[in-house]
């Protein structure tokens, strides 16, 4: 079951890259996120799974679809036609190298040293407090960047409207 979920994750990731329609790419990425969340749930990582489902499969997909809709009509970028030949060869080579490396690693992984104690909230709030501060900083930086990028240039807008008015009076 775990293997099928990982294969689904990989397949939809490949579909997201190779699909010509950007909307299909975004939706394939969301489906890949759902497969990843299911993998997390199977590994008992419930909180990571919930975040993956709600934030990546939900929020990021909405952001992608909004951006694709806002730039629609201009989104036809001619990708090279070689992907159909190059990508399978690249993927095959990557898979073979990956298989050989992982086969060599198989006996060399050290044994488990010991398990942690406490609940998730204790670990998150007591041990990883600095991470939380970093997360707040990252979210604030993102919000400020989006606000800065979408701010309206009032001075330019007024100048344009003044020019329009004078043009009207001349006529």
């Amino acid at each position: 079951m775990h293997l099928f979920l990982l294969i689904g994750l990989l397949a939809f990731s490949i579909l997201a890259i190779l699909s010509r329609d950007l909307l299909k790419s975004a939706i394939s990425l969301a489906v890949a996120s759902i497969f990843l969340a299911l993998v997390f749930f199977r590994m008992n990582a419930v909180y990571a799974g919930v975040f993956e489902l709600s934030v990546v499969a939900g929020l990021i997909t909405v952001l992608f679809i909004t951006a694709i809709t806002l730039t629609r009509g201009d989104g036809d970028v001619a990708e090279s036609r070689g992907h159909r030949i190059v990508f399978p060869l690249f993927f095959l080579a990557l898979a073979v190298v990956d298989l050989l490396v992982m086969k060599k690693l198989l006996g060399q992984i050290p044994a488990i040293q010991g398990s942690e104690s406490g609940t998730f909230s204790q670990v998150l709030w007591n041990q990883r407090t600095f991470d939380l501060v970093g997360q707040v900083g990252a979210i604030s930086a993102g919000v400020l960047a989006v606000l800065a990028l979408f701010r309206r240039d009032d001075r330019h807008g007024n100048a344009a409207s003044d020019g329009g008015d004078t043009g009207g009076r001349h006529e």
Partner: peptide, 15 residues
């Protein structure tokens, strides 16, 4: 637990 908190950090930065 630690791995999940790090994964959540990665997801937030990614967003």
């Amino acid at each position: 637990m630690v791995a999940q908190s790090l994964a959540i950090t990665v997801i937030v930065v990614d967003v």
